[in-house]
Amino acid sequence: MTVELPAFRDPTLLERALTHTSYVNEHPEEHAADNERLEFLGDAVLDFIAGAWLFEQFPEYDEGRLTSVRAALVRVSTLAKFAYQVGLPERLRLGKGEIDTGGRERANILGDAFEALLGALYLDQGIEAVRDFVVPLLAQATPEIVQAKLDRDAKSRLQEWSQGVLGVTPRYKLVAAEGPDHAKVFTVEVRLGDRVAGMGRGSSKQMAEQLAANDALARASELVPRTESSEAQKGSEAEGQGRDARLPSASAPMA
């Protein structure tokens, strides 16, 4: 999904939103301003819009769930993806040193620039213009977050369950990273003891790990001795759905 940048009435606001502090430091003769103040403003605007949109879209969610989903929507990795979708990397004004060290692909720089863009758009055209611009991006990202239960931190729940029931700590391993830098797909496996307990694929390593943890939680009853199967089944049902790949059976050889 790609989204076009809106036309700014004041182009200098857009230029400032795309100006990293490294550019300002390397070009003092321009007396340019960096995007940090706009980032501060955009962060506040995004929090409000995302919160209001989630409130309207998910009337069944309580305050805690709304807060956690919003946190997943506005985290750096999500904002960096938004920045790619609107074509920010090639438009950023960075210092040469930052460019040479991969600044155009750095998630924190991209996420900050996206927030600065929202702050600039708010100053240029108001809250409704920002809402019209950002809500399609939120709507596209939310289903994946909810499906992967990224807002509920499946890794923590799997660790609590596996240590309590099996006496082992989950270990995550990156199996593959495929595709171009701006659209990689990561495959991660999670092991409980010597067995592959879950697999996950996602657009970030964090997302793939969460999906792998959900996969393991969904098959908890297959991972424990039969004498504990009823307890494991309860854990599996409580953790819900969200599998991304089939697991080996309890008798399958070690992967």
Rank of each mutant, 00 (worst) to 15 (best):
M254H: 08
F48P: 07
S251G: 14
L117A: 00
S68T: 08
N214M: 09
R171G: 10
A52P: 07
V74N: 08
H20A: 01
V188F: 10
E60R: 07
G126R: 03
L158A: 04
R9E: 03
F114P: 01
G119Q: 12
R75K: 14
V24Q: 10
S236T: 13
Q159G: 11
A232E: 11
V190R: 09
V146P: 01
L54N: 04
V196D: 07
A216I: 12
R191M: 06
E115T: 15
H27P: 03
H20Q: 00
H182E: 05
V175Q: 13
G200V: 09
R171K: 07
R70V: 09
A220I: 13
R195H: 00
L137E: 08
D47M: 15
K205I: 12
L121I: 06
F186S: 10
Y84C: 09
L79Y: 11
V185T: 11
S236K: 11
F58T: 10
R16M: 09
R70M: 13
K173G: 09
A33T: 15
M1E: 02
V69D: 00
E115P: 12
V3D: 01
E90P: 12
V224L: 11
R93T: 04
E98C: 15
D215S: 02
V165E: 08
S77F: 13
R226Y: 11
A72N: 09
A208G: 06
E105M: 09
P59N: 00
F40I: 15
K155P: 07
S204V: 09
T101C: 03
A32I: 01
V168L: 06
Q163T: 14
N35C: 14
G200L: 01
E128N: 10
T169K: 12
E128C: 02
S204C: 05
R246K: 13
R195M: 11
D194L: 11
E239W: 15
I49M: 07
P11D: 05
G179Q: 07
E39L: 14
P89F: 02
L18D: 11
A71C: 01
R106Y: 14
E222V: 08
A252S: 02
R104C: 00
A116N: 02
